[in-house]
């Protein structure tokens, strides 16, 4: 069953067509890669899917619903969560608090009870924190739960972004260059982590990555963008030998 479908999605910024009639489809349980040279329009694709921008034309369907132009917070509630290429953590909040913000969209108690700090709010806060701690274990950050998130190392911050996104309990997880700035060992761990998230937690994952080796070893299907256009799509082996892809990545090892 198709979970996410882009149908000729297009967005223009003035004269620049950042995403030009891009179509692809994700099935439930996919581990899907979105690649392309810098400035190809990958992040903009994420921004279209998550409601940061409204598509100029084209359709985006999630779980049977057209979502193009729906506000970002509603999209999160529908079940799409994301991380950011340029890390956007809540810097002065602790690691645990960052994750609780993600889980908060499932809260049940009204604000008025919170202002009076009623027992039901105390209980809910405790359970959200407990849930968050479980997620921190998955990304191996439970030991630093009380640390200010800005004080984490770069690799840890990337992992915290993943935990925060997972806390919204999404159906679809979008990861924007999760391996950027990581050393080989951290990348190895991340690879296992993403597999675990798909296989054990059962999320569908769409990931942007610049590191070819990383994507090829992780993703089962890949779409390649170049200058806003989709130039290839298919399994890693087909992508690797596609002349258009090689031309787009001229000089880079694919």
């Amino acid at each position: 069953m198709s979970l996410l479908q882009l149908d000729q999605a297009t967005i223009k910024f003035g004269g620049l067509i950042a995403v030009n009639s891009v179509s692809f489809e994700l099935k439930k349980g996919d581990l899907f890669g979105l690649i392309g040279p810098n400035g190809a329009g990958k992040t903009t694709c994420f921004n279209l899917i998550t409601g940061v921008y409204k598509p100029t034309s084209g359709k985006i369907t999630f779980d049977g619903k057209e979502i193009g132009g729906t506000p970002a917070n509603k999209i999160a509630n529908l079940g799409i969560a994301r991380t950011f290429q340029n890390i956007r953590l809540f810097k002065s909040l602790s690691v645990l608090e960052n994750v609780v913000v993600g889980g908060f969209l499932r809260h049940k108690t009204p604000l008025l009870s919170a202002l009076a700090y009623m027992p039901n709010v105390i209980k809910e806060t405790e359970s959200l924190k407990a849930e968050a701690l479980e997620l921190l274990k998955i990304v191996n950050l439970d030991k630093v739960a009380d640390v200010r998130s800005a004080d984490l190392s770069y690799g840890m911050q990337r992992r915290l972004e993943i935990a925060r996104a997972m806390a919204t309990q999404p159906k679809l997880l979008l990861l924007d260059e999760p391996a950027a700035g990581m050393n080989p060992q951290e990348k190895e761990e991340l690879n296992a982590m993403v597999k675990h998230i798909r296989d054990e937690v059962g999320l569908t994952v769409l990931l942007i990555e610049h590191d070819m080796r990383f994507v090829m070893s992780l993703c089962e299907r890949i779409v390649v963008l170049d200058a806003g256009k989709e130039i290839a799509a298919g399994p890693p082996d087909a992508i690797r030998s596609d002349p258009k892809v090689i031309a787009a990545y001229l000089g880079e090892a694919v």
Partner: peptide, 29 residues
């Protein structure tokens, strides 16, 4: 103080820290 002690305070702090990330987490900014 009650607000900050409960989970309900976190979206307020999150909005202060980063509006785009907050809305991506489902917060109505």
């Amino acid at each position: 103080r009650n607000l900050l002690r409960s989970a309900h305070g976190l979206p307020f702090l999150a909005v202060r820290e980063d509006e785009i990330a907050s809305s991506a987490m489902g917060v109505n900014v």
